[in-house]
């Protein structure tokens, strides 16, 4: 397998005073170019921490992240993040929010007019061009997340990191946005690493599902290949036997073998 993004023996411990908590233990994962990989696990298992380590926002205690065989340990636009709560800057318009990243990434390689066109191109990709002059508090939650995706895509990242991107949305909006992300992945061929706690979402979107055990010291419990051809259609999959099998497998992992234990 050609390793595009490689998570190499990642350990993470948090130290506060005298107490040390081991959050992640020996995480190894290799992701191919163009692959869509989901990480699923119960809340508190450290999956967001893992994403932050890949993004470079948090440092790993041991091990590291290799992107195209080069170690990456600080944040950068090559690993753009779509944050769970969209994190748009409320004082900037939709257009300016996307432009912020574009201006930095393409400062030298694109002219002003090209950057402008590129921002609009990305807003068009997520069907948000009509709201370009609105501010984040004037658009709906789903629209904000679309803009968040446009902002990340516009940086032309090597890996797109999605941190529970649909978690804060209602079910209908979520389904729409999942379809959009699928269409974008199909069209642009991005490498995507997504954090989720939704089993259906993981099976529908991913090529592989990485299932994490409960923390502390969370490990990768199992990696499941999703053998479904793309493009995938939500309605047809509902009765597809391999879809159901994958779903069953993930559910078994999460609710039988690694049930969520409420912290005392």
């Amino acid at each position: 397998m050609h390793a595009y993004l490689k998570l190499d023996h990642i350990d993470k411990t948090f130290t506060r005073g005298n107490s040390t908590t081991e959050v992640l233990k020996d995480i190894n994962l290799t992701i191919e170019k163009g692959e869509y990989v989901s990480i699923i696990g119960h809340s508190g298992c450290g999956k967001s921490t893992l994403l932050n380590i890949v993004a470079g926002l948090t440092g790993a205690t041991h091990g590291g992240v290799l992107l195209e065989n080069r170690e990456v340990n600080s944040p950068g636009p090559d690993r753009a993040v779509v944050f769970q709560n969209h994190s748009l800057l409320p004082w900037l318009t939709v257009y300016e929010n996307v432009k912020l990243g574009v201006d930095k990434v393409f400062a030298k390689t694109k002219t002003r007019a090209e950057r402008d066109a590129w921002v609009m191109h990305n807003l068009n990709l997520v069907q948000m061009a009509h709201a370009k002059d609105k501010r984040p508090n004037e658009i709906s939650g789903g629209m904000k997340q679309r803009v968040g995706i446009a902002r990340a895509l516009a940086m032309e990242p090597k890996v797109l990191l999605l941190d529970e991107p649909f978690g804060a949305l209602d079910a209908l909006t979520r389904a729409h946005l999942q379809d959009s992300v699928m269409a974008l992945h199909q069209k642009l061929g991005n490498t995507i690493l997504m954090i989720t706690h939704d089993v259906d979402e993981a099976v529908l979107l991913s090529d592989r599902i990485v299932m994490m055990t409960n923390g502390p010291s969370a490990r990768i419990g199992e990696v499941l290949e999703v053998p479904l051809a793309r493009p995938r259609k939500r309605l047809e999959l509902a009765t597809n036997s391999s879809y159901l099998k994958c779903r069953q497998r993930v559910l078994e992992f999460l609710y039988e073998r690694h049930r969520f234990v409420e912290a005392a």
């Binding site: 993004a55 470079g56 926002l57 600080s74 944040p75 950068g76 636009p77 690993r79 753009a80 993040v81 944050f83 709560n85 994190s87 800057l89 912020l100 990243g101 930095k104 990434v105 940086m155």
Partner: peptide, 14 residues
């Protein structure tokens, strides 16, 4: 300042 904004700034590399 919310950590989110700091994260955005870090990813964009301001």
């Amino acid at each position: 300042i919310p950590q989110d904004y700091r994260n955005v700034a870090a990813v964009v590399q301001l």
